[in-house]
Simulated scan of single mutants.
Amino acid sequence: MPRFSRKGITKVLFLETIAASTFLPTRAELTGATKLTKEIAEFEGFNLENEEIETPDLESTFNSKIPGNDSAADSSLTFYEDDASSTLEEALAKGTVGFIVVLRKGDVPASKSMDVWPIRVASKSSAITIDNEAAKWTARFSITDTPVLDAAVPAAV
């Protein structure tokens, strides 16, 4: 099985809206999206976690479990701060709703590697440091609905 590094392959986009109630963006919507990939310094969360339910019984000393509720892990993106433009900070202002789209294997039409996360920006904060590093800011996201995982990337036009 060929392996790959996400760096240089995975794409991350922000869409303000997706017309379909299924949360599946069209090629035109992906093309018009705000591209985040190049500005991302850190990627955290954007995965599902399950609260398993213990189901012990009197017949065994083993505590079995069944799947319970799903929830999204705490999710955030840390960006490099741009000293000439505030386009991303404005696009991802606190309270903004939209979608984070992750093309895990790149923009490869028909690849079932697109995840769509309905979000609201919960907070936005700058990291202030005197260390020898690039200026950064972080957007934290509330996942507002069930994400679409492993969807097919729309065909190129």
Rank of each mutant, 00 (worst) to 15 (best):
R104K: 06
N132Y: 06
T26L: 02
K105N: 10
W137K: 01
A73L: 04
D74I: 08
K7A: 12
M1G: 15
L77S: 03
E49N: 12
N50G: 06
A139V: 01
E54D: 12
E51T: 09
T10V: 05
P67R: 15
E44M: 10
E51D: 14
S85V: 02
L92I: 09
R6F: 09
I128Q: 07
V121Q: 07
N69P: 03
T26C: 04
V153Y: 08
S111Q: 10
R120Q: 12
T129L: 08
T55F: 07
E89G: 04
G95N: 07
D82Y: 09
T55D: 13
T26W: 01
E16G: 11
E16N: 11
A91L: 03
T78L: 07
S125Q: 07
A91R: 13
A152G: 01
F14R: 05
S126T: 13
E59F: 10
D131I: 10
P25L: 02
D57C: 06
D107K: 08
S5N: 08
F23L: 10
W137A: 00
Y80P: 07
E90Y: 09
K94W: 01
V148P: 00
R120I: 02
A134K: 10
A84G: 11
S85K: 02
S142G: 10
D131C: 11
K136F: 06
A122G: 08
K11P: 02
V102G: 02
L13W: 08
M1I: 07
A110T: 15
T96S: 10
I143N: 00
S85W: 00
T55L: 11
M114K: 04
L30Q: 00
N69R: 15
F99R: 06
I130N: 12
Y80G: 11
K124A: 14
F141P: 08
E90D: 14
I119T: 03
S125R: 05
A151R: 00
N63M: 03
K136W: 00
A73W: 07
A152W: 01
L30H: 01
F4K: 04
T31W: 02
L15E: 06
A41S: 13
I143A: 04
W117Q: 00
T78V: 08
I18A: 05
D107R: 01
K7R: 02
V101Y: 04
G45F: 14
I18D: 06
P67I: 08
E52G: 01
A156D: 15
K65V: 13
D145L: 06
G8W: 00
L103P: 01
A122L: 12
A19S: 11
L15T: 01
I18P: 12
A134E: 09
T129G: 14
